[in-house]
Design a protein around this nucleic acid. Structure first.
Length: 766
DNA sequence: AGCACGCCGACT
DNA sequence: GTCGGCGTGCTC
């Protein structure tokens, strides 16, 4: 008798146990890594087989933590999903690591590997028009078509020939030539109808099979295949990565930081590294922050590797995503480009993972389990003996620290290929502008530069800060800003819809005529300076503006369209928030303007400087990509600000050293690790009580167990203290001894309490 | 997630 | 006295 231990795939936080089931006679092939349907309580649910064993082994394992376990209540597995295990050993190992590291259940970790998080859907069962129950069925449907293979008899018939059946002979010819079974559509293209294929099958000349049809909505032809001459630095980087791909497990590092200034050609290194891995018969995963902002990488890879490349992005349907996963598993495609979740794809033989712009926050999942794709990738690379390549101009301080301290390889690209030089950065003091009676949000210098660039037939990019871009409503008498009644945030004015909108709960409200607090009629729209900026810029001589922001890019692929129109010179100034700073490479952009550079730097969070610095460098990097030199005008009210000065000099190293020194003092990463615990409750008092209990518990245990250097902060209200009428209270633990903190938490009752969320390595500590 | 069980408030 | 609110606990 065979038994299996099953992790139940339900989106429940407190289901940490696995359950045992008996395998029926017809499912004896089921073992570790299979997806199954099992009865659970009164319903049927999906489960993942974590272990398979005999009756004796099962008894031994189960009696260890439950001495009076009996087989009496054990149920049978209802069905197997698919025809082979979904998880191989490596995926299972990664899931187990993830569950432990991020303090979630094994099932929660495993379901990340399932496209769409579950393989089944509930199917209502009707009898006599009445709903009697729910059954379950497979959710992802593989689309199949009938296809035909030539048989021996067919080959003989073709050899013999038959002048009276010309079409049949041509069909046999086609089947013989084809490597894969031929379907009706493919035959149609050769002017052979499906009926002819059927006739061949009836004669025994062809064998009918089912072929899986793969959908691909991101199938666009890429032209642009040019093989650029590598610089000496690029060459060196490629050689080192190759050496690691050649003999892992030896003295070569398995992980690299590829730190290259903007425009230094990191993509060229990625391509060569990927090419080498493919030649070894191994697969490559390329993670990008967002597909729409990285079309150039996608195009380069498609031009180089053609249909070896598969792309996953958030606009793919669940079925399409399933097809991409299938291609990787079978080796039909061998390069996968995708965002965060692509790190959970099934690979046949993973050899290299590339993470572009590794410092980007989009690699961190916000919802539970709050994993970071870089950490998951590192685990998968270790389990696969694969190489991990992290690329950035401004790496995260965690990664930079690993590189300079020698625990990973450090590859550097310090100059741009060709004659291209880094742009000159001019800092403009906006206080001085005010003193000179310029009340505009555009400095005189930036105005001159824009007009000059446009006049010379060149283009400009202007970066607005998102916070400055939002417009709030403020009362001039009592100073109140209009806030959402359900969330602790200001409402944002949307000019196009003429409403006030909450960016957390999405509710909209009419625009007030009077202050809801004091009744005053003196209402001011605060922050509208950026609309003024757009207006002013568009009125400059010869300027045609294109705007790119959340509002103008409702659909994700619209980014691409806007960039495309800008490249085609339908406009000469591109105006927008963060996203104009990222990724794209437009040769005629010679000027970048950054309005209000400081507002991003003054957030009360330990990563604010790092993020701000990175944004400034990225934005500046858009200028002078082609053969014309670029310039950057950076406007600030705080020209003495250190971060702005490091950005002006494009000096990452000194910036990083200064920042690391601060983090060391304050026990922030990479020196201390962080866990953020958030208590969420509609009752504010209850939230505080539970928060106090958690903090007290941790402080006691910290003292009792003598944890290494640890600081416990809070409870304090979360940065957004209320969302959708739910109060949020945080406790932040910083520690050099995180293993102990995690063990303590996972052994506590808080692990299964529903309204406490754990965020390991959070992006923000507020 | 569902479902059962159990303990307090407002009704026929 | 009962109906039903949801807080808690369990599912092999």
């Amino acid at each position: 008798m065979k038994y299996v231990l099953v992790a139940i795939n339900l989106p429940v936080k407190n289901l940490f146990r696995q359950f045992i089931y008996r395998l029926p006679e017809n499912l004896l092939q089921v073992g570790e890594g299979w997806r199954v349907i099992v009865p659970f309580g009164s319903q049927k649910v999906e489960g993942f087989v974590v272990q398979a064993f005999s009756r004796e082994e099962a008894a031994e394992v189960l009696q260890k933590d439950n001495p009076d376990f009996s087989f009496a209540g054990v149920k049978e597995v209802s069905a197997a999903l698919g025809t082979r295990p979904w998880f191989n050993d490596e995926m299972l190992q990664t899931a187990k690591w993830l569950a432990k590291y991020y303090l979630c259940s094994l099932a929660e970790a495993m379901r990340l590997f399932i496209p769409g998080k579950t393989s089944i859907r509930r199917k209502p069962v009707y009898q006599g028009g009445k709903l009697i129950a729910y059954d379950v069925e497979e959710r992802l449907k593989a689309r199949t078509v009938l296809a035909y293979n030539i048989t021996e008899a067919g080959r003989a018939a073709l050899q013999a020939g038959n002048p009276r059946a010309k079409v049949q002979m041509r069909a046999l010819e086609l089947l013989q030539q084809a490597a894969e079974p031929v379907d009706g559509k493919e035959a149609e293209a050769q002017h052979i109808s499906a009926a002819v294929l059927r006739a061949l099958a009836e004669k025994g000349w062809a064998l009918r099979t089912e072929k899986r049809l793969l959908r691909n909505s991101y199938d666009r032809q890429a032209e642009w295949k040019e093989t650029l001459q590598l610089t000496s630095e690029q060459e060196q980087a490629v050689l080192k990565i190759r050496a690691s791909l050649d003999h892992f497990a030896s003295s070569c590092p398995q992980e690299f930081l590829l730190q290259g200034i903007t425009g230094s050609g990191k993509t060229e290194v990625y391509l060569r590294a990927a090419d080498y891995a493919l030649r070894q018969g191994r697969q490559v995963l390329v993670l990008v922050p967002e597909i729409a902002l990285t079309t150039q990488i996608v195009q380069r890879f498609q031009a180089w590797f053609h249909n070896e490349v598969a792309v996953v992005h958030s606009k793919l349907s669940q079925n399409e995503r399933g097809d991409v996963w299938y291609k990787m598993r079978t080796g039909e495609a061998n390069v996968l480009i995708g965002v965060r979740s692509a790190v959970f794809a099934p690979f046949k033989n993973l050899g290299l993972v590339i993470i572009d712009e590794e410092q980007e926050n989009s690699y961190k999942q916000e919802e539970r389990p709050a994993y970071h794709a870089r950490e998951v990738a590192r685990c998968r690379c270790n389990n696969n003996s694969a190489v991990l390549l992290l690329g950035s101009a401004t790496p995260s301080l965690e990664t930079y620290y690993r590189a300079v301290s020698g625990s990973i390889g450090h590859l550097q690209l310090t100059f741009r290929p060709g004659n291209s030089v880094l742009p000159a950065v001019d800092v403009v003091d906006m206080r001085e502008e005010l003193a000179q009676k310029n009340f505009s949000v555009i400095s005189r210098k930036l105005r001159r530069e824009i007009v000059a660039a446009v006049h010379a037939g060149q283009q400009a990019v202007v970066l607005l800060n998102r916070r400055g871009y939002s417009t709030f409503v403020m009362c001039r008498d009592c100073g109140e800003t209009l806030t959402c009644p359900h969330c602790a945030v200001s409402l944002v004015y949307h000019a196009d819809e003429q409403v006030m909108r909450c960016h957390y709960c999405g509710n909209t409200y009419p625009i007030p005529r009077t202050c809801p607090d004091c009744g005053s009629r003196r209402i001011k729209f605060f922050g509208s300076g950026t609309q003024k900026a757009e207006q002013e810029i568009s009125q400059m001589p010869g300027v045609r503006v294109l705007r790119m922001d959340q509002d103008s890019t409702a659909t994700k692929l619209a980014h691409e369209e806007i960039i495309g129109r800008f490249v085609k010179k339908e406009a000469n100034v591109l105006l927008g928030t963060q996203m104009v700073a990222k990724g794209h490479d437009i040769p005629d952009v010679t000027l970048v303007g950054i309005l209000a550079a400081d507002s991003a730097l003054n957030l009360p969070d330990f990563r604010a400087s790092e993020r701000g610095f990175s944004l400034l460098i990225q934005a500046a990097g858009r200028a002078g990509r082609g053969d014309k030199p670029g310039r950057v005008v950076l406007q600030t009210y705080d020209p003495e600000n250190e971060v702005i000065n490091f950005a002006k000099k494009q000096d990452y190293e000194t910036f990083a050293k200064r920042e690391l020194a601060q983090r060391k003092v304050l026990l922030y990463p990479p020196y201390g690790q962080i866990i953020k615990l958030t208590v969420i409750d509609k009752n504010e008092k209850k939230a505080w009580e539970l928060g106090d209990e958690v903090a007290l518990f941790l402080r006691n245990r910290c003292e009792m167990e003598k944890w290494g250097r640890t600081e416990i902060m809070g409870p304090f209200p979360s940065g957004v203290a209320k969302v959708r009428d739910l109060y949020r209270i945080n406790i932040v633990v910083k520690s050099m001894d995180m293993e102990k903190v995690k063990n303590c938490l996972s052994g506590s009752r808080f692990r299964t309490v529903k309204n406490i969320y754990f965020d390991v390595d959070p992006i923000t500590a507020i």
